[in-house]
């Protein structure tokens, strides 16, 4: 049986493997040409090669923003990950519990519905009063941003559990808790992994927004300094750093999902 299954597994055609690489290469080539040919002046935009050169310089040169690239990146990763992990730790269990237990839904949903429409950056003024502009304040804002998609996806992941599976478990006399652990949570996992991806994007976006307003290091701060000093290379370096870091984490989550959801994912 296993061999028969292996035999019908479809291999990814070479074209589909090459296509993403070709697309990225074409993007950077066009970008480089647009700058080199003067379509957009260098005072408004830096070329990819210029950004790479600047990246190399910023690895050991703290000027003009006061810190080398690794310090900015580490600050942002620390802030983003603290907020991200906190939002997962609070949002996912809450969403799962709200999806299955009426008591949890009754207690938490009204408050959640009030919090949901508030943009996370609206918390910035209060956060500055409460925490100042150090790590804890930014972590709070980022947590608020990641928390919402975590709750929503986990909640609907449980709500979308196949009712026949629940009935099947009930005929065996399974308790509510057993059904929650063995049926609802595994069933909600694809939506939960969706939440990990959405929350990651939201956390990074919010991090940059928070650092634009109040920070002394970080990738968002690098972008702000670049704007203030009219150094588009610095702005692009900050943007690319945010993009690449987010993409690497996104791919890692995707790999984890593939491994954990072997029976569910195609």
């Amino acid at each position: 049986m296993a061999k028969a299954y292996e035999a019908v597994k479809v291999k990814t055609p070479l074209l589909l493997k090459v296509l993403p690489l070709a697309s990225i290469a074409a993007f950077f080539l066009v970008w480089q040409l647009v700058i080199d040919l003067g379509v957009v002046p260098r005072t408004m935009m830096e070329s990819p090669l210029g950004v790479i050169k600047l990246f190399w310089v910023k690895l050991h040169q703290p000027n003009p923003d006061g810190a080398i690239w690794t310090v900015h990146a580490w600050t942002s990763i620390k802030e983003a990950f603290s907020g991200y992990l906190l939002s997962l730790a609070v949002g996912i269990p809450l969403g799962l519990l709200m999806g299955w237990f009426n008591l949890a839904e009754g207690l938490a949903r009204p408050i959640f519905e009030m919090l949901r429409p508030i943009p996370s950056i609206a918390w910035i003024p209060l956060t500055i009063y409460w925490f100042g502009i150090d790590l804890s304040g930014k972590v709070f804002i980022i947590t608020m941003a990641g928390f919402i998609p975590c709750v929503i996806n986990s909640y609907y992941g449980v709500k979308m559990t196949n009712p026949t599976l629940i009935q099947m478990a009930r005929t065996y006399g399974a308790s509510d808790w057993n059904i929650f652990l063995n049926i609802c949570i595994p069933s909600a996992l694809p939506m939960v992994f969706g939440a990990l991806q959405i929350a990651l994007a939201t956390c990074w976006t919010t991090l940059v927004a928070a650092e634009l307003i109040a920070a002394d290091t970080g990738l968002g701060f690098l972008i702000t300094i670049g704007r203030k000093l009219t150094l588009p290379g610095l702005v692009v370096l900050g943007m690319v750093s945010v993009g690449l870091t987010g993409a690497v984490i996104g791919v890692a989550i995707d790999r984890l999902e593939k491994k954990l959801l072997a029976g569910i994912r195609r």
Partner: peptide
């Protein structure tokens, strides 16, 4: 008590 339903009740995440 056991019940076999008309539709599949296999849990896709379990072997």
């Amino acid at each position: 008590i056991s019940f076999v339903f008309q539709e599949s009740t296999c849990m896709p995440w379990r072997t």
